[in-house]
């Protein structure tokens, strides 16, 4: 099968502190790949490095293009988008303006309508400032924005973390909808959620990949639970 994203020998960190060490992974089109690990394992750092938010060494190839040295906006325009864990809104901008900012390939009205169909609650709050939304609504908005870019690959950083159970189900549905047209790299702490939506998993420990494989097999063999200390 062709590879959508090929990462080899990735090292990244903050200042002189190295967090990721020689990380290599492959993402195939249409897959939902979970990145799992304990707190501080380097999951968020991995997504930030792939997205060009922090400097990195190694090789990152997206659909044949070496994007290792590309800036974040260029990576985004190449089809890889990011749903961050926090800081997901622009203070002072309304929900409609957030959806407009993210809209690149389609009419704004159509994109807003699509977002409101996927998340009806956002449709009720289009003219509300996004920083006044609840945590769950902000996650919905971030996912809706990611989908508007018609991406090939979505990097999602713990989209269900800190969200009420009733909203988690909506977000899982949205992740499934998103996976119809794009591959997803999903950082997820909750094993049940990861198993429900994921097809493959990489497990990080201290910035290194220590296990990988089909997520259901890792779950059935108890590897996930063992590695995550559950």
């Amino acid at each position: 099968m062709t590879t959508l994203l090929h990462v080899a020998g990735l090292n990244a960190g903050y200042g002189s502190s190295r967090v990721l060490r020689n990380v290599s992974l492959d993402i195939t089109p249409g897959s939902v790949v979970c990145v799992m690990g304990r707190n501080g394992a380097g999951k968020t750092t991995l997504l930030k490095a792939l997205m060009g938010v922090i400097p990195k060494q190694g090789s990152v190839v997206l659909q044949g293009s070496d994007i290792t040295r590309w800036s974040s906006h260029r990576i985004s325009r190449a089809g890889m988008v990011w749903v961050p864990q926090e800081d997901t809104v622009f203070p002072g901008l309304t929900v409609r303006e957030h959806l407009t900012v993210a809209c690149r390939h389609q009419e704004v009205a159509a994109a807003v309508a699509a977002a409101a169909t996927l998340f009806p609650v956002l449709g009720d709050r289009l003219d509300q400032e996004a920083q006044t939304l609840s945590g769950g609504e902000r996650k919905m908005l971030a996912i809706a924005q990611a989908l508007e870019a018609s991406p090939k690959l979505i990097l999602m950083d713990e989209p269900t973390e800190g969200v009420a159970p009733v909203v988690v189900q909506d977000l899982i549905t949205a992740i499934r909808v998103a996976s119809r047209n794009a591959a997803i790299v999903l950082v997820e702490q909750n094993v049940d959620t990861a198993v429900a939506v994921g097809s493959y998993a990489y497990i990080l420990e201290r910035g290194q990949i220590v296990e990988s494989g089909a997520i259901k097999e890792l779950h059935e063999d108890g590897v996930l639970e063992e590695r995550l200390g559950l």
């Binding site: 997205m51 060009g52 938010v53 906006h73 985004s76 988008v81 800081d87 622009f90 002072g92 900012v101």
Partner: peptide, 16 residues
Amino acid sequence: RATIRNPILADTMGIN
């Protein structure tokens, strides 16, 4: 306005 309010997020959304 997006750039001023949250430059990192704006950049990752494709804004130069």
